[in-house]
């Protein structure tokens, strides 16, 4: 039997963070996306222990100021894409510079410097990623998904999907379903 899950990465990450911090008996306060405030300064030993335990979950402590800012950009973009309430028709550049208090051009060049890819590209990747989730885990058809993700048309979504992944949404769905079929056969 196969089970399929949907995740809320925010909750997962928050929960993991809380567990790990609690395990080390640290006094802390969650400030928002991927940011905590520690009441006391960490000892080097405890810092290493925390970093190691979080690495198991693919979570890393960002050390540079640039890194922190990039992470914040990423978090806001994810929130913008995945959270329907903030997913209004606001231009992403405006939204980001408002939220982070920096000019978009600064954010953009910083982002490219650190991640080797552009903010625009990152937004597209996130949107397509969300589209993938919707294609696989919901009954929504492409038109509904295009609407949900603020695309002007199905063709626009399809084109962007194809340009980003090299395959069409239907082919994507077909491939993943075939994979699931195979793994199910293996189990049986």
């Amino acid at each position: 039997m196969n089970l399929f899950f949907k995740f809320d990465f925010h909750i997962v990450c928050k929960k993991v963070l809380e567990d790990k911090l609690n395990a080390l008996n640290l006094d802390y306060e969650l400030l928002g996306f991927g940011e905590i405030e520690l009441k006391k300064k960490l000892t080097p030993k405890k810092y290493l222990a925390l970093n190691a335990s979080l690495n198991d979950y693919g979570i890393g402590i960002i050390e540079s100021q640039k890194g922190i800012l990039v992470q914040k950009i990423k978090d806001y973009i994810k929130d913008m894409v995945f959270n329907e309430k903030t997913n209004v028709n606001v231009k992403s550049s405006v939204y980001l510079s408002e939220k982070l208090g920096h000019s978009y051009s600064y954010l953009s060049s910083l982002f490219t410097e650190v991640t080797y890819s552009s903010i625009k590209n990152f937004i597209i990747i996130q949107k397509i990623e969300y589209a993938k989730q919707l294609i696989l885990n919901t009954e929504l058809n492409l038109t509904e998904i295009a609407f949900k993700l603020n695309y002007s048309s199905v063709a626009h979504l399809s084109t962007q999907f194809k340009n980003t992944t090299g395959i069409t949404p239907t082919a994507f769905q077909r491939i993943i379903f075939k994979r699931r079929e195979i793994s199910q056969q293996k189990i049986n």
Binding site: C13, S117, F122, E129, L136, G166, I167, I176
Partner: peptide, 14 residues
């Protein structure tokens, strides 16, 4: 790298 650093679902990476 994006997938690697952004906790994207690798199962859906095509």
């Amino acid at each position: 790298w994006q997938y690697h650093t952004n906790n994207l679902n690798k199962d859906n990476f095509l």
